[in-house]
Every structure is written in C-alpha cells, then in structure tokens.
Amino acid sequence: MSEQKLEIVKTEDKKPKPETDQIPFGKTFTDHMFVMDYETDSGWYNPRIVPYEPLTLDPAAMIFHYGQTVFEGLKAYRAEDDRILLFRPSQNLQRLNRSSERLSIPPIDEERVMYYLTQLISLEQDWVPSTQGTALYIRPFIIATETNLAVAPSHSYKFMIILSPVGPYFSGGLKPVKINVEDQFTRAVKGGTGTAKTAGNYSSGYQAQAKANKEGHADVLWLDGVEKRYIEEVGSMNIFFKINGEVVTPELNGSILNGITRMSIIELLKKWGIPVSERKISIAELYQVYEEGGLEEAFGTGTAAVISPVGELNWLGHQMVVNNHEIGELSQKLYDTITGIQTGKVEDRHEWTVEVQ
C-alpha cells in the first residue's frame, strides 16, 4: 500500500437524520463514505472520504460474475458521556484479511485502515444515535472491479466503508425466538468459504430461512454439510448452549465463522469461572440432553443482536422448549455486560473498546 494522504471531500448537501425510534436496519446511510482502490501494479491507493453516492461499474466487472467479495460488520456506540466507542474493531479488520485470503483478495494494512475508519466516524459522529439500543452500523467491504470474464482473481478492487444508523435489534425488548433445525440445505463445509464473510454464504441460506419463517420460526440452525449431524451456526450467528451448568459452543472446524461476539463471550465466561467448552455437539446429543432435563439455556451471538435467546428448537418434528420460553439468567448477564462495555456503562477491563476522537 503506497504512502498517500487521506483526502476528505465534504458534502454540501447533508441529509436529514431519522428519528432514533424509527430507524429500520440497513436502509438509512450517512453523508459520507470511505473509498480506496487497488491495482496489481500499484497496491492499495487513493484513500478518500467522499460524499455518499452510487457506484459506476462496467457490466463485465468481475464481482457480478464470480462473486469475489468480502465484508465485515461492526458498530459505533454513543456513551452516556457522549464519547463514541468502537468494540474490538481490530478483530474485524483481522477477520476481513482472513476472508480476503480465502477469496484471493489482496490484504489491507489493518493499522492504516483503522485510522481511515476512525476519521470517517469522527466526521460522521453526529449520525451516532444516543437512544438506548441504537448504534451506527459500520460496513467495510471489498469488491472485484476488473472488467474481465476470465475465471481468475481480479487485478483490481475497490474497498469501501459505509455507515448506517440502526435502531434496537429487538424492537420489543430481548425475547427468546423459535429456531428450525435445517435438515435439507447445507450452509458450508470444511475447506469451503464458511469461515469467510463473503456474499454467497448468506444468499445460499435464503431458501432455508424462508422455509423456517413460513413455519413460524425466526431463524435456522445449520447442521454440518457432510453428515447432517453436528451443530454449526444459527443463521448469521454463532450458537451456545448451557448444559447442566456448562456452556458449550461448536468448535471452529473450518466451516464456522469465528465470531467476535463469540470470542468475547468465551473470554467472559472463563473470567467468571463458568465452565465453557468448544467441541463438536450433535443435534441428537442436544435432544437427549433436553429429554433428560439438562438443556438450561440456548442463545445465538453476533454483532447485530449481541445475544439472541433461543426459546424453542424444532428438529424433525421434535420440539425442544428452552427455559419455558424465557430469557436465561446467564444470557441476560452476558447481554448486559457486553452492551454495557460497548456503551461505556460497564467498566472495560479487557481493553476491548476504542474511543473515536
């Protein structure tokens, strides 16, 4: 990446900001965005913050044909003392580079991109809402832009960061959801792209999600793609189970995304002295545990929801009601602790937050 000064072009036509209690997820965008380009002979170049605007791409741009793209998702939070805080952003940039490696996309300089990111958020800090449960969602992403129909990695790319204020994930408060265990479609397999945040991983799950929604379920629990036995993820979240006092989550096996919220929860549980293990767990084992009365809590984890309690799992006609459709004590404590750290209400003893100046 060549040494170049960050160019900032401010808009002359600022948008009205939405009411904080009426912000739909991902439909409202701030005044500016970050853009940087890549060419094989030049590396990453021309970093700039410019007014938010549409892109112009050639119809033969390789992103349209071969799906060479990666992305991330994180948030900026407004603390009660008006500070703007990011939650473990370096982990997102590290994961972006891991995803890029899997998709044959050149890596970014994480330290310099962190600087560009904080400069963008500083410019757009008035867009960070202050109402409880709200945040400024941050979407960094890379797309292949070379005009070429040859099946090979692109020689040119565009890296962008766009920002979107978002309301509370749970508009009616934290409530357990119903999950359908998917037995037909496959999310990912070891050696595939399941460990990367890339577009195709998500669109390939739409049919299973639609089927689950039609049957009254909020999300899908994916099983492994080979044997259809072992639990992997819930939709776009990692999954945890509290079983007879121990917290169990599927181990990272080459097809499961290494979630940053997942990582944080494991670290918190270990600090609290609560037994936690990362291992293979089959759906049959989980059902047996449930039948024996040992399934105490279940919850998904991710940037959007932080904690999404699971109140019911349905597997081949077997219904598993978790904690009487109520939020578990541990799930609530984890949610309160992580959201408290993110918003400055709880002391950050882990150095997880970064203040935007």
Score class of each variant (00 low, 15 high):
E110Q: 14
T193L: 00
K190S: 09
T249W: 00
N213D: 08
A196D: 01
A218E: 12
E232L: 03
F170M: 08
L74E: 02
T301L: 03
E227R: 15
P153S: 13
Y169V: 13
G259Q: 02
A298L: 09
E7W: 13
Y52M: 10
A210D: 09
I23T: 13
N323E: 06
E278N: 03
R102P: 00
E329G: 13
V247M: 01
W44F: 04
H350K: 11
K14G: 15
V128N: 04
N238I: 02
S154N: 08
G340T: 14
V9L: 09
Y52K: 07
F241W: 09
N201F: 00
E80S: 14
E296Q: 07
K333V: 11
L120H: 03
I108Q: 04
A61S: 12
N324L: 10
I179A: 07
E12S: 12
I281H: 01
D126K: 11
I231E: 01
G173N: 11
K5Y: 09
Y77Q: 07
K242E: 06
Y116A: 12
S331N: 08
L120V: 07
M263Q: 12
N46T: 15
I142D: 00
Q357I: 12
I231P: 04
N238R: 01
T353E: 03
P309V: 10
E146L: 06
K75E: 02
D31M: 06
P250L: 00
P16D: 13
R279N: 00
V321H: 06
F141D: 01
N324Y: 05
K190Y: 06
N244T: 13
T20F: 09
S122W: 12
Q207M: 10
P140Y: 01
E7A: 14
I84N: 04
I161Y: 02
I341G: 08
L269R: 02
P51T: 03
I105A: 01
S264K: 05
L93M: 08
F185I: 05
K75Y: 02
Q132E: 10
H217G: 15
K280Y: 11
G273F: 10
D183F: 12
K333C: 08
L86D: 06
Q132T: 14
Q319L: 10
S164R: 05
G205H: 02
E72D: 02
L174E: 04
P16G: 14
G194F: 01
T11P: 05
P89S: 03
S308V: 15
P153W: 07
D82K: 14
F170S: 09
Q319N: 11
N97H: 06
T195E: 00
S255Y: 04
A298E: 09
E312Q: 11
T343Q: 06
L117V: 07
R262D: 02
A298G: 14
Q22D: 13
A79D: 08
I8Q: 02
H65K: 07
S99C: 01
E251V: 11
V276F: 01
Q22M: 12
E246N: 09
E347Q: 15
I260M: 01
T353I: 04
E312F: 10
L103D: 05
V220W: 01
K158H: 08
S104V: 14
T20P: 13
E227Y: 15
A79W: 07
Q68V: 05
E355P: 15
V226M: 08
L117T: 07
L174N: 09
E72M: 01
E19F: 10
V189I: 08
A199R: 04
Q132N: 10
G328V: 06
F170H: 09
V128W: 03
E3D: 15
T11N: 03
L316M: 13
F64C: 07
V321L: 06
T186Q: 07
F141Q: 01
